[in-house]
Design a protein around this nucleic acid. Structure first.
Lengths: 96, 96
DNA sequence: CATCTATTTGTATACTTAGCCAAATAGACA
DNA sequence: TGTCTATTTGGCTAAGTATACAAATAGATG
């Protein structure tokens, strides 16, 4: 498989991870600093197991990383450059 | 629905449109200038109906626009800023 | 060690997406 | 008008995704 094909698959998976509003919400929340699953669950209208699965999706593509302390798992944003993406998207989409 | 909730849905749909390697390929091809469906179909190992549906997905979220001339439909990139996204993604993902 | 809290994973269900083939549509042009 | 080419849409199937609930796991603490 050529480099560019492989790169497109990586990018596609990256975008797929961001293609759910709950996961975008999580990314936004983590831009303030790390949060544990239970804190995020308090903010999201979904079962903790669902939130955990969303976090796993983000982690799989490298958008967040996790760190266990005590019996809590803290997630943090590994690629803050996503935040500038988000701002960048809004502008062009609004233009037409 | 609050503005930010709505904005997240828009962004999520935008990312969803980019979350398929065939569609990323199309975006790359269109960065060179407009192409008709048949040209794209020649480059992609899929039925023309499939390519047409991918183009419709991109058009729905405003990533491409279309223009009919004769009996051909030409698609072009409306948000070239996606190309800088793509470059931007690769860097952070490679970092760990 | 028993048990409590936080998290993840198994499983089932409902929904969505991708793909193909075939049929419909639309323009060009004899 | 009839027909050819380009494109889109209908309908189906297979595969993937989101979600909840329940069960399993792991650390903390009595």
């Amino acid at each position: 498989m050529s480099d560019s094909v492989q790169q497109r698959e990586i990018s596609a998976n990256f975008f797929k991870a961001l293609s759910h509003s709950t996961r975008l919400f999580i990314v936004e929340q983590l831009s303030d600093g790390e949060k544990c699953v239970c804190e995020l669950t308090d903010m999201i209208d979904a079962d903790m197991s669902t939130v955990s699965r969303h976090l796993a999706v983000l982690k799989n593509v490298g958008i967040v990383s996790s760190c266990k302390r005590g019996n809590q798992v803290f997630y943090s944003l590994r690629t803050p450059c996503i935040l500038s993406f988000l701002q960048c998207i809004h502008a062009p989409l609004g233009q037409g």
